[in-house]
Simulated assay, not measured.
Amino acid sequence: MRTAKTQWRTGLGDFSDCLLTGLLVALASVPVVTAAPAFAAGCRTLDRTRHGIGSPLWTTFWADFRHAARGGLLFALGCPVAVVLFVVDLEVVRSMPGAGVLGPALWVLAAAVAVVALRTCEVVATESLSWRRAVATAARETAAAPGNALLLAGAAGLAVVLVWMLPILALLVAGPLALAAVATGGPR
Rank of each mutant, 00 (worst) to 15 (best):
A110N: 04
E122C: 10
L57W: 01
A110P: 06
L166T: 10
V124F: 06
V116K: 02
G11D: 06
E127Y: 04
A38R: 03
L172R: 05
G42I: 10
D17C: 13
A180P: 08
S128D: 15
G98L: 10
V108A: 10
A68Y: 07
G78A: 09
A181W: 01
A111Q: 11
V101Q: 12
A134H: 01
A183V: 00
G22D: 01
V101Y: 15
A76Y: 06
V108Q: 01
L129P: 15
L74R: 14
V84T: 03
P167M: 07
A112C: 04
A26P: 00
W8L: 11
G52Q: 04
V81K: 02
W58F: 13
D47F: 10
G78Q: 05
R66W: 05
A139D: 09
R140C: 09
G54R: 14
G154A: 12
T45L: 15
M1T: 13
T45V: 11
W164H: 09
S130Y: 12
V116A: 08
R70N: 10
A159E: 06
A143E: 01
L77W: 02
A139V: 05
G11S: 11
P176M: 02
F65L: 14
A143G: 10
H67C: 14
V25R: 04
L77T: 03
A155G: 02
A178Q: 05
M96A: 14
D47K: 06
L74E: 12
V81A: 14
S95C: 12
A111M: 07
L179G: 09
V32C: 05
A145Q: 00
C79W: 14
D14G: 13
D14I: 09
L172T: 10
A35L: 12
L90E: 12
G100A: 11
G103Y: 03
G186W: 10
C121H: 08
V87F: 10
A145G: 00
L166M: 09
T59M: 11
V113E: 01
L23M: 12
V163C: 08
S55I: 13
A136G: 11
M165I: 12
W107G: 09
A178L: 01
L171Q: 04
A35M: 13
P104K: 02
L74D: 04
G11R: 05
P97L: 11
A156S: 06
T3W: 13
L24N: 01
P167C: 02
A41S: 14
K5I: 10
Q7H: 00
G157P: 08
V173S: 01
H67V: 15
T49K: 09
L23N: 01
W8N: 00
V101F: 12
V161R: 03
G154D: 03
P176E: 01
M165F: 09
A117D: 01
A125T: 02
L85A: 15
C79D: 03
G103W: 07
C121Q: 07
A174E: 00
